[in-house]
């Protein structure tokens, strides 16, 4: 087990290095720091001096990989790649273009993101799996057929529609909840984003789980369980659900660490000061330092999710052993 974990951590390093190289190539080689300075200073009337001043103020006045002017080991360390990219490995994100510390922003903004993303995830999972089991229970009937048609229709609707319609109906027309905003500890602000988030993926998810379950239900062990005289409910919940756990966990566990990052669309529409809206603001303001940090954080969390997925297999399937 320990061996396995160590191997996974070692395996993560080349991947994170690859991610860093990719973003570095995008942001520093295709787009030079000069381009960046020009965007921030406004495209016109830029002098060479003002670009140099901006670059030195934001620490972009270093060579990319090799610093010829430095001595000894500093030849390799006094470079943009080390300062801007490798430092991310120490979770040292540096400062955003507006001078604020990115790490501190992430620390304070992850809580609102979690407050929305965790309930959305938990309620959603519970609802989709139950709905799918219900459809499978009534398989072959018109309820099942209707449910499938409903799912296809729901997944054909743009995600933006759910947000806009939800805000209009629940916020403006019925006055159930505030249209947008956030206050720590105030549940009123959380209900609508969570509801919209859950409803938004009913179509996709239910269909996915339904096809999982209907594949399982055609297997021999299900026939055996029925032949033993077990009730259909017991067959469904104990046998089918139990055996479908591996594919369910494969899709589900990997996203759990990413919940920190929040949802871009939901947070920006509902004015939640979380990491999702932080990212979207950074994209719109072309603040590459933040985008780079979020890319790194996102891949880190994804790899953590992969490890968690493997660990979760051992919990639901006694045959799986991590060596």
């Amino acid at each position: 087990m320990l061996n396995y974990l160590i191997r996974r951590v070692l395996y993560a390093i080349p991947i994170l290095l690859g991610v860093n190289l990719l973003t570095f190539a995008l942001f520093f080689m295709v787009n030079t720091p000069d381009d960046m300075a020009r965007i921030h200073l406004g495209a016109k009337h830029v002098t060479a001096e003002s670009i140099a001043r901006w670059k030195s103020a934001h620490g972009y006045d270093l060579p990319l990989f090799i610093n010829e002017q430095a001595a000894g080991i500093n030849k390799a360390t006094d470079t943009l790649f080390v300062y801007k990219s490798l430092r991310l490995f120490a979770l040292d994100f540096g400062a955003a273009d507006d001078g604020r510390d990115i790490a501190r922003e992430i620390g304070s903004r992850m809580w609102p993101s979690l407050a929305i993303a965790l309930p959305t995830f938990a309620v959603g999972l519970l609802f989709y799996v139950s709905f799918a089991l219900l459809l499978v229970f009534f398989r072959g009937t018109s309820l099942d057929a209707g449910g499938v048609v409903l799912c296809v229709a729901l997944m054909s609707i743009s995600g933006l529609f759910y947000v806009i319609a939800g805000q209009y109906l629940m916020g403006k027309l019925w006055h159930w909840f505030p249209i947008s905003g956030y206050q720590p500890g105030a549940w009123q602000f959380l209900v609508m984003p969570v509801l919209v988030g859950v409803v938004g993926s009913i179509g996709d998810s239910t269909r996915f789980y339904r096809s999982l379950f209907s594949e399982e239900i055609a297997r021999d062990y299900v026939r055996t369980a029925r032949a033993k005289g077990l009730s259909e409910l017991r067959v469904l919940f104990r046998h089918v659900l139990g055996n479908a756990m591996i594919p369910i966990l494969t899709g589900v566990v990997v996203v759990i660490p990413r919940l920190f990052l929040g949802s871009l669309i939901i947070e920006s529409f509902f004015g939640i000061p979380g990491l999702g809206s932080y990212t979207i603001d950074a994209i719109q303001a072309q603040d590459f330092a933040i985008v780079r940090s979020m890319v790194f954080l996102g891949s880190l969390l994804y790899i953590a999710g992969l490890v968690l997925t493997d660990l979760s297999y051992t919990l639901v399937d006694p045959r799986v052993r991590l060596e």
Binding site: V19, F288, V291, V295
Partner: peptide, 17 residues
């Protein structure tokens, strides 16, 4: 490696460039 980067962010980074 490609999968580990959040999709929208990767697209956003490339589009910005």
């Amino acid at each position: 490696t490609l999968n580990s980067i959040p999709g929208v962010l990767l697209i956003a980074a490339a589009v910005l460039v």
